[in-house]
Write a protein that binds this DNA or RNA. Structure first.
Lengths: 335, 335
DNA sequence: CAGTGATACGTTACCGGTAACGTTATTGTG
DNA sequence: CACAATAACGTTACCGGTAACGTATCACTG
């Protein structure tokens, strides 16, 4: 039951060599004969020896662990975490996730310190403003952020082009022939929400569409917000023929409101979302939306971080991944 | 930029004492005069000193970190993680989460080893069968599982009574007057799904309702599964007047199917879910469901684990938390 | 005023690894 | 065949903490 894990010293003793030789053998370093190396490796695996990463960190500063700081788990962060997880693993690292609780958006400095001591590098999933970034900057280890907030990023960052995505969504609706398009914003505290809104406005202007301010309703990226916003949009005398929601969850709320009003999608009202979370494919009707390569963003973040850990100069300070329009069943030509 | 973090030795040097005295002062241990203690603490905080948990672990076996092993992030695990997080923090600990990737349901033993060395205790969120539990058992540190799988649990476990919850849901429908009730199962590999199914069958029998086997359709806890199952249920000649879905996500899928069939909830068809995820409150109509105290489960798990870490004898080997019926708008009397 | 006990500290050793350097035996070279 | 270079290993020291034990000072006690 309480079998203390074998240490390097245990392995070395059984193999009849010094700890150092055992260390060399297990780390594939030079200075050990092939026979000895094989013996040691065999003995180590027989004994179930696994190196203690803490001790390694203490000794040489490497743990082969990367830390992830995430906001409250959402479908958005979840997928990213998955992407990060798989590619971290394939790089021979492991990942530990630290979740900020909703109450402390700026976590106690202990967290930063914690991860700083545990991890070889940190990936920050960053939809919200975060004061603790300053502390992170002082940290002496590589940091990559995802979906950076500031126009002038503090760290190397992986972002998607929310602006481009917004334009894609609008282009699709416009091509279908819609001229009055309602817009449900996201939480405008977030940069992603603001860039999507900007894309909407720019496209309205560029194509000379109705610029009725009533067509823009504020949401919050949540379902209820989408529902309420859609209700307002449906109450407009000259009702729009399509609604562009800033994310899929809002679109889901909007769908409820539309149905409650006795309308159907896409016959009476086209609906476009944003994010392409897994739910949107499974909805009925399946939601036309803007795909964000969340998993790929995770992978890119890892690649970038790995390069930084290896001491390489980071080529780009900010990497933008493209979005993609996914046409499903929730959009059609206006009647 | 690259300011190496101050160590205990740095603090001690500035304070003009030995490392040991500094350690004692910072850990509130006896053997230091009040004045010296205050001096040291002041200097430490001025220097921004924070203890290195790795070194602590190496030295005395404590990190004040608890590890969480979770399956792929789902809304289910997410809420639990939140509950764990807050109560872990209030106990002066921190939490790091390890996510199993979908490919490796039994993670490389490295994970277990990893957490074993990092953490003072481990909480395993365990909806699925997991071979690696055996390895965990050999670990020499406290483990608590949540939603244990086996009838005879390997570890102290926090569970909810899925059977009781299933009965509550059925009771509600029966009280409303439903006599033909369809059931959408969960993934029957999971114990939770099986106990809900058993509750359904038992209630059918107990109240002498229609025991038509066609009324039981297999789902998988996913939205599509719920959609398909509901379609089958609606295709039955003598259509049920209510559907009990094994979880909220399935219910969401079922809702789509019901609407597609031109029926409305709850007028033509009552619908009950299970889990009470946040989405179910926001749906339209808001879903009647069985509330599982996910956050409280997390808290209980932490409490139990803390007791084990403190070396206390664990009073109960398995703690069952009650479920609760939450009546919203998706259920009504049959027409 | 020697003996006792507490108080306030310092020293040493160790946790489990690795870097840096030292030591021995073997081989190759002029 | 003396000598240098190399391979294969061992020793020592250190990462940043803490446990265990040692020591100096001081206040009481009888």
């Amino acid at each position: 039951m309480k079998k203390p894990r074998p240490t390097l010293a245990d392995v070395a003793k059984v193999a009849g060599v010094s700890r150092m030789t055992a260390s060399r053998a297990l780390n594939e370093k030079a200075g050990v004969s092939d026979k000895t190396r094989e013996d040691i490796q065999r003995i180590a695996s027989e004994m179930g020896y696994v190196a203690n990463p803490l001790a390694q960190k203490l000794s040489n500063g490497r743990t082969h662990i990367i830390g992830v700081i995430a906001q409250l788990p959402t479908s958005f962060t979840n997928e990213m975490v998955m992407g990060i997880g798989t590619s971290v693993r394939s790089a021979g690292y492991e990942m530990l996730v630290y979740f900020l609780s909703d109450t402390d958006m700026q976590p106690p400095s202990s967290v930063v310190n914690l991860l700083q001591q545990f991890a070889d590098g940190i990936i920050v999933l960053l939809p919200y403003e975060a004061d603790y970034l300053e502390k992170l900057r002082q940290a002496s280890l590589p940091v990559v952020t995802v979906e950076s907030l500031h126009d002038e990023p503090t760290f190397p960052a992986i972002i998607t082009d929310g602006y481009q995505g917004g334009r894609q969504a609008m282009e699709h609706l416009i091509e279908l022939g819609h001229r009055r398009i309602g817009f449900i914003t996201g939480d405008l505290k977030l940069i992603s929400a603001r860039s999507r809104l900007k894309a909407y406005k720019d496209m309205i202007e560029q194509y000379g569409l109705d610029a009725d301010p009533a067509l823009i309703c504020e949401g919050d990226y949540m379902q209820v917000g989408g529902y309420d916003a859609a209700k307002s949009l449906l109450a407009i005398k000259e009702r729009p023929t399509a609604i562009f929601a800033s994310n899929d969850i809002s679109a889901l709320g909007a769908l409820s409101a539309i149905r409650e009003a006795g309308l159907s999608v896409p016959e009476d009202m086209s609906l476009v979302g944003f994010d392409d979370i897994s739910l949107s494919e499974q909805m009925h009707p399946a939601l036309t939306t803007i795909h964000q390569p969340l998993q790929q963003m995770g992978r890119s973040a890892v690649n970038l971080l790995m390069a930084m850990i290896a001491g390489l100069e980071v080529p780009f300070h900010q990497i933008t991944l493209p979005t993609e329009l996914v046409v499903r069943q929730s959009t059609a030509k206006p009647k």
